[in-house]
Design a protein around this nucleic acid. Structure first.
Length: 880
RNA sequence: GGGCGCUUAGCUCAGCUGGUUAGAGCACUGCCCUUACAAGGCAGGGGUCGACAGUUCGAAUCUGUCAGCGCCCACCA
C-alpha cells in the first residue's frame, strides 16, 4: 500500500502534479484525422490583469469541458492567450508615469508604446501563471497575444477588407467620449447608471423681444452650445413660434425655433434646447434642420473657447456658472428633482460626454444579418437558451460600431491620407507614397482600433488565419466559447459577425454563458468597493480543487454570490475523498484486477449506482449541466460510497474469509477508480494524486489522459438496489432506536427480524455480519419472536418486522412518545392517500402503475398504523 | 418605455420534460474522539415552495395577473 498523509495537503500536491502534466505533454493537441476535434479559444484576459473570480469560474468551466473531452478521446484543444486591452493597459502605464510626474506626451508616441511593451513583457505573464495554478490544461505552446504579428496581420486584413467593401467608413458623428481616458468608446462600453439630478427650466428671450420660450434641461452647461430650440410640430402652445428666432442669453447670437417630431410635448415644457454637438437626438434634429453644431468641450470636458466667458471651467463648474448668470438675467424659472440615467465609462467610470468628432465606424447592419440567421437556424446555440433572445434583440437593432480610439497602445488604423490629392486609403503594407498621385506627403491615421476589433477575430486568428493552416481547417469552427453574460454584446456578437464574414462559418457551435461571481451580499466585486476576493488566496487556503468544485457546483447560470464557507465545504469534500481513498488503499493489496464472479448484495448495489452515476455525469457534462454533474458526484461519493459501501465493506475486510476480503477490496478499488475518472475534470489534482497510488495496470498512465468510463448497463441491478435499500432502512431503524432512547453504543441490542417476505429475510440473514457492523453491537435473531413476557419495540420498515425487547434498555415514556409520533405521521399519510385514491379522476386518468403504487403505499401505512396502535397497547399493559 | 432573471428550511442555494412523505451546504439540537476521515460519524428539529387565479385526476414544476428584489436594453432633453 502507498502512504497517504492523513489530511489532504493541496499545496504539496498541486505544483508537482501540474508539472508532471506539462512534462507529459498532455495539454497539446493537434489535427488528427482519427479523432474528432474539440476546440475552445479562451476569452483572452487582459494581459496586465490579475486573476479574479470571474476568470476562475470561466476557466474552470472551460477546463472541465476540455478535460472531459480529452478523456473521451477527442483532439481536445484549449487555446490560451491574452488581450492587449488597449485602454486598460494604456491607463495602467500612464498611471505609473503620472506617479513619476510624467505623461505619455513627455515620452512621445514611439517611446510610450515601447514602454508599454516593456511593461507587458515584465508583468504580462502573471495572469498566465495564475491560470496554471487553477489547473488549466490549456495548450501553452499555442499561447497567443492579440498584438502578435500573426494576429496583427489578421486585424489589418480585416480592416482593409471591410474598408474596401465599404463596411468601414469615417464620419463626423456624436460618439461617447470618455474625458478620463481621452478617447472615443463604443456604445457597449458605456454603462448607464441611475442619477438623481434636476430638471432646470429657463427662458430663451425671443429675438424680437416679443416674449420668450421656456426650455427644460438636465445639463444646463450645454446651453453654451445651443444652436436652436425645438418644439413638436403639433404642439398648439408653440405653433406661432415655429420659424421665429430666439436670442442666446450668453452669446447673444440668434438661434431658430424649429419643429421636429422627436420632441415630446409632454416632457418638461415641451420646448427643447438643441445642442447638436453634445447630444445624439439634438444632433439628429440638427441634421434635419441644417443647424450649426458647436462643440463646447475640450478632450477633458472642460469648456473650450466656444463657451465664451465660461471657457476653462469643467462641466460641473460651468453648470453652476451658467445657472448664476441666468439667474442674474432673471431667466431662470425653476427646477424639479429629476431622476435619469447617465453614461459612465466601463473602464474608468468617468461620466461620458457625447461629443461630436470624426471617427471610424463599422457598418453593422449588413454584417449582422448572417449573424442573426446563424443563430435562428441553430448553427450557433446559446446555453442557457434565454441568452438567445438577448443576443438577437441586440443584433436586430445594432448600431454602427465606433472602432477608432484616441490611444497609442493598440493596432494602429491602417489608413493613409494624402495631403496633396486628398486620397484616403487602407493598406496591408505601410506605403511610402500616395497610391493615387505618388506624393510622398502622406500620413497615417493617428488612432488605434478598439481592442474588441482584434478579439472578435480570436476564434480564427489564434488558429493562424489569414493563413490557411491545417489547424484552421481542422479546429474551425470551434465547439464552444465560455464567457460571462456581460460580454455577449462586446465579444460574442462580434465574433459571430467576424467569423461568418471572414470564415464563412460560425466561430463556435455553442455559446455557454455563465453568471457573474459576486460577493456574499450580491455586490459586484470591485477594487473600489474593496470586496474582491483573491482566488489565489483561496487556492492557498483551500486548494485549487476546492475552489474549482465550488465554482462548478454553483455554475447554474445564475450569478454566484460566493461565500467562503462553501469553499471550506468543498475542501472538506476533497478531504473526505482523500480519506476514503486512504482506506481503500490500505486494503488494496487484496484487490484483483477483475470483478469477482459472485458479488454480494452490497457490491451489486454500489456497482449499480456507479453505472447510473456514470451515465448521469456523462450526460450532464455533455449538456453543459456542470453544476448538476458536480452534485451528483458529491452525493454519490459521500452519501453512498463512503457512508454505506465503505462502512459495509468492513465486515468482510476485517473478517477471516480471504476470498470475501479480496472480493470486497476489488470492488472498493474498482468503484474508486471509476469515480476518480468521473471527478477528474472538476477536481483534477486530488484525483490524479490518488490515481497515481492506485494499484494495477489501469492507473499506469496519467489520469488526465485516462479513458472516460462507460456506464455498464449490465451492472444496473434494481433487485440489489431494493435489497440494499432494505438493509439501509433496517440499520437506520436500529440506529434511530438507539438515538431516541439514548441506548449507548456499547450496550448490546437484541434485534428480532421477521417477515412475510421469506426471500427478503433470507437476504438479510446472509448479510448478518454486515448488518451487525453497520448497526453496531447488535445481535440479530431471524424468524423468531422475542420471549412473550417482555415488552418490545416494533420498528418495522417496509415488509420487515423488527422487534427489540425493551428490558433494561429504555424508559417507557420515551418509547410511547416515539410511537405516538409515528402514529401521527402514519395517519396523516393515510389521510392524504385515501383522498387521492378516492378521487375518481385520479383512478380514471392516472397511469395504472402510479395508482397501484399509491394503493400499496396506503396498505403499508394502514398496517403500520395498526401495528403502532398494538404496540402502544402493549406498553400500557406491560406483559406478564 | 420595453425585455430578462429571481422569490423554496434561520442563511446561501439545487430542484430536467408536472406523479414517492420537497432536497443540499452552512447554522441549530442530542449522542459519539467506533482502528479512512472530528475538515469526521450517527440521529434529529426546521419549509402553507412570494400572493392570487387558472389548466390538470394531480402543480414548487405549466399558464395568467399582481407584489417585491436585481439586471439589461432604449435619443423623453
Amino acid at each position: 500500500m502507498s502512504e497517504l498523509s492523513k489530511v489532504y495537503a493541496p499545496d504539496e500536491v498541486e505544483g508537482r502534479i501540474y508539472k508532471s502534466w506539462e512534462e507529459g505533454g498532455y495539454f497539446t493537441a493537434s489535427p488528427d484525422p482519427s479523432k474528432k476535434p474539440f476546440c475552445i479559444a479562451i476569452p483572452p484576459p487582459n494581459v496586465t490583469g490579475v486573476l479574479h473570480l470571474g476568470h476562475a469560474l470561466d476557466n474552470t468551466l472551460q477546463d472541465i469541458l476540455i478535460r472531459t473531452k480529452r478523456m473521451q478521446g477527442y483532439a481536445a484543444l484549449w487555446i490560451p492567450g491574452t488581450d492587449h486591452a488597449g485602454i486598460a493597459t494604456q491607463n495602467v502605464v500612464e498611471k505609473e508615469l503620472r506617479s513619476q510626474g510624467r505623461t505619455r506626451h513627455d515620452l512621445g508616441r514611439a517611446k510610450f508604446v515601447e514602454l508599454v511593451w516593456e511593461w507587458k513583457q515584465k508583468y504580462g505573464g502573471q495572469i498566465i501563471e495564475q491560470l496554471k495554478r487553477l489547473g488549466s490544461s490549456a495548450d501553452w505552446s499555442r499561447e497567443r497575444f492579440t498584438m502578435d504579428p500573426g494576429l496583427s496581420k489578421a486585424v489589418r486584413k480585416v480592416f482593409v477588407d471591410l474598408f474596401n467593401e465599404d463596411l468601414i467608413y469615417r464620419g463626423n458623428r456624436i460618439i461617447n467620449w470618455c474625458p478620463g481616458c481621452e478617447t472615443a468608446i463604443s456604445d457597449v462600453e458605456v454603462n448607464h447608471i441611475d442619477h438623481k439630478g434636476e430638471l432646470v427650466r429657463f427662458k430663451y428671450p425671443l429675438a424680437d423681444r416679443s416674449g420668450h420660450v421656456t426650455v427644460a434641461t438636465t445639463r444646463l452647461e450645454t446651453m453654451l452650445g445651443d444652436t436652436a430650440i425645438a418644439v413638436h410640430p403639433e404642439d398648439d402652445r408653440y405653433r406661432d413660434l415655429i420659424g421665429r428666432m430666439a436670442r442666446h442669453p450668453i452669446h447673444g447670437r440668434e438661434i431658430p425655433i424649429v419643429a421636429d417630431e422627436a420632441v415630446e410635448s409632454e416632457f418638461g415644457t415641451g420646448a427643447v434646447k438643441i445642442t447638436p454637438a453634445h447630444d445624439q437626438t439634438d444632433f439628429e434634429i440638427a441634421e434635419r434642420h441644417n443647424l450649426d453644431k458647436i462643440n463646447i468641450f475640450d478632450v477633458k470636458a472642460f469648456v473650450n473657447e466656444n463657451g465664451g466667458p465660461f471657457a476653462g471651467l469643467n462641466r460641473y463648474e460651468a453648470r453652476e456658472a451658467v445657472r448664476e448668470e441666468l439667474a442674474k438675467q432673471s431667466l431662470l424659472t425653476g427646477s424639479d428633482e429629476h431622476e435619469y440615467q447617465i453614461g459612465v465609462c466601463d473602464r474608468c467610470k468617468t461620466v461620458i460626454e457625447p461629443w461630436l468628432s470624426e471617427q471610424w465606424f463599422v457598418r453593422m447592419r449588413p454584417l449582422a444579418e448572417p449573424a442573426i440567421e446563424a443563430v435562428k437556424q441553430g448553427r450557433t446555440r446559446f446555453y442557457p437558451e434565454r441568452w438567445t433572445n438577448y443576443y438577437l434583440n441586440w443584433m436586430e437593432q445594432v448600431r454602427d460600431w465606433c472602432i477608432s480610439r484616441q490611444l497609442w497602445w493598440g493596432h494602429r488604423i491602417p489608413v493613409w491620407y494624402c495631403d496633396d490629392c486628398e486620397k484616403v486609403w487602407a493598406s496591408m503594407d505601410d506605403p511610402s507614397v500616395c497610391s493615387e498621385c505618388d506624393s510622398s506627403s502622406i500620413r497615417q491615421d493617428p488612432d488605434v482600433l478598439d481592442t474588441w476589433f482584434s478579439s472578435q477575430l480570436w476564434p480564427f486568428s489564434v488558429l493562424g488565419w489569414p493563413e490557411q493552416t491545417e489547424d484552421l481547417a481542422y479546429f474551425y469552427p470551434t465547439v464552444a466559447t465560455v464567457p460571462g453574460y456581460e460580454i455577449i454584446h462586446l465579444w460574442v456578437s462580434r465574433m459571430m459577425i467576424a467569423g461568418l464574414h471572414f470564415m464563412g462559418d460560425v466561430p463556435f457551435k455553442w455559446a455557454i454563458i455563465h453568471g457573474i461571481v459576486r460577493d456574499e451580499k450580491g455586490q459586484k466585486m470591485s477594487k473600489s468597493l474593496g470586496n474582491g476576493i483573491d482566488p489565489i488566496g483561496l487556492i492557498d487556503r483551500y486548494g485549487t480543487d476546492a475552489l474549482r468544485f465550488t465554482l462548478a457546483e454553483h455554475a447554474t447560470g445564475q450569478d454566484i454570490f460566493l461565500n467562503e464557507e462553501w469553499i471550506a465545504g468543498s475542501r472538506n469534500f476533497a478531504n473526505k475523498l482523500w480519506n476514503a481513498s486512504r482506506f481503500v488503499l490500505m486494503n488494496a493489496e487484496f484487490a484483483a484486477d477483475e470483478l469477482p464472479e459472485n458479488l454480494e448484495i452490497s457490491d451489486r448495489w454500489i456497482l449499480s449506482l456507479l453505472a447510473n452515476v456514470t451515465k448521469d455525469v456523462t450526460d450532464r457534462l455533455e449538456r453543459f449541466e456542470i453544476a448538476a454533474a458536480a452534485r451528483t458526484l458529491y452525493e454519490f461519493i459521500w452519501n453512498e460510497y463512503c457512508d454505506w459501501y465503505i462502512e459495509s465493506s468492513k465486515s468482510r475486510l476485517y473478517g477471516d474469509d480471504d476470498k470475501a476480503k479480496a472480493d470486497v477490496a476489488t470492488v472498493l478499488v474498482w468503484v474508486l477508480e471509476s469515480t476518480l475518472r468521473l471527478l477528474h475534470p472538476i477536481m483534477p489534482f486530488i484525483t490524479e494524486e490518488i490515481w497515481m497510488t492506485l494499484p494495477g495496470t489501469k492507473s499506469s498512465s496519467a489520469l488526465i489522459v485516462a479513458q472516460w468510463p462507460e456506464s455498464d448497463a449490465a451492472a444496473i441491478d434494481l433487485e440489489a438496489e431494493a435489497s440494499f435499500d432494505r438493509i439501509k432502512e433496517v440499520v437506520g431503524a436500529i440506529r434511530r432506536f438507539r438515538s431516541d432512547h439514548r441506548v449507548a453504543l456499547a450496550t448490546n441490542v437484541e434485534v428480532f427480524l421477521s417477515s412475510a417476505n421469506a426471500e427478503a429475510l433470507a437476504n438479510l440473514r446472509r448479510e448478518e455480519s454486515m448488518l451487525a457492523g453497520l448497526a453496531r453491537h447488535t445481535t440479530f435473531m431471524f424468524s423468531s419472536e422475542p420471549p412473550t413476557e417482555e415488552a418490545v419495540a416494533r420498528l418495522s420498515v417496509g415488509d420487515i418486522d423488527i422487534a427489540i425487547p425493551l428490558a433494561g434498555l429504555l424508559d417507557l415514556d420515551a418509547e410511547r412518545e416515539r410511537l405516538n409520533k409515528g402514529l401521527g405521521q402514519a395517519r396523516a399519510e393515510i389521510e392524504r392517500l385515501s383522498t387521492k385514491l378516492s378521487n375518481e379522476g385520479f383512478r380514471a386518468k392516472a397511469p395504472a402503475d402510479v395508482v397501484a403504487q399509491q394503493e400499496q403505499k396506503l396498505k403499508e401505512q394502514s398496517e403500520l398504523e395498526a401495528m403502532v396502535l398494538d404496540q402502544l397497547d402493549q406498553l400500557d399493559t406491560p406483559s406478564k
